[in-house]
Design a protein around this nucleic acid. Structure first.
Lengths: 150, 150
DNA sequence: CTCAGAACGTGGACGCGATCGACCTGAGCC
DNA sequence: GGCTCAGGTCGATCGCGTCCACGTTCTGAG
């Protein structure tokens, strides 16, 4: 993980569809060399995937909510986690310090669907309570920050 | 926005580096037709960008925190927003219903940097108070959910 | 009904990019 | 020195991206 790898990661965080030839020009190596480096970054787990960032409203996911989960005192964390994992509406899941064990980001089409999701969460074994906050608007999301060498 | 556009969006959400030729095979059109459709999806704002999803620890961003912002009663929301926008550590920003006007997702390298960030936020004009919760681990993030036609 | 035009597709052509193999170079080590 | 290995360049080949000319379908006007 040298400075060139870091540049490649930064370039691909900004635009995942850059060609190897273009990456090569940017970092001053040949295309095969870049191909090899990017392959190693993928194999080593540094680059996990390439995603198109899509306007959620355009695909019928206009409602964003953040949901905190308080666990039952006796509940098993892994069971709760697996139950949550099975709900496709939950786009992100963080395990937190604090009273709320998990913080979830969910996206659904309508408030009615959000209601159903919350009911399902409250019915889940190991979940003592939930706290939901609805996002009125998403100002930005997953903005890549400039990297400092490590 | 027909069923084919939806398939293209779904394919690119799963893997943003698919070639037009491959997309064409998947949806049963020719490569130029796919090229044209994807271009329109980009121009129309449905596809906003293509991003490499990178393991944060690998690039020195091992600390994730979620921060709620309570606004001053007299403060201007836009000013606060612009101040937040200027902080690169804030990867996501949601405008919320509830006491806390904003919910931020921040990533930094160390707890010390998080401390500095929180101090800077509290010092920001228009910010009455902040509430920070540190994520112990990220179970998953930005998982694309299967699309239903709209 | 017929016609014009728009929207959207296909197929061909051509240049560039992806990718493979052969070879080069410098560092580390006996 | 000479071996080995990591990591690069170069050159060749093949497939992809992209432009363009043309065909088809649909729609609305006369």
């Amino acid at each position: 993980m040298d400075a060139i790898d870091l540049s490649l990661v930064e370039l691909l965080r900004g635009n995942a569809r850059l060609s190897y030839a273009e990456l090569a020009r940017q970092v001053g190596l040949s295309a095969p060399a870049v191909h090899e480096r990017v392959g190693k970054l993928e194999a080593g787990g540094v680059i996990r995937s390439y995603r198109a960032d899509v306007e959620p409203e355009a695909i019928g996911l206009g409602v964003t909510a953040l949901i905190g989960i308080v666990q039952d005192s006796g509940g098993d964390t892994d069971d709760v986690l697996e139950a949550i994992r099975g709900m496709p509406e939950i786009e992100s899941c963080y395990f937190m310090a604090g009273v709320e064990s998990f913080l979830l980001k969910a996206r659904v089409g309508t408030i009615a669907e959000l209601e159903q999701l919350i009911l399902r969460l409250n019915r889940t074994a190991g979940v003592a309570s939930t706290r939901t906050a609805v996002a009125l608007s998403t100002k930005w999301e997953n903005r890549p920050q400039p990297l400092s060498p490590s």
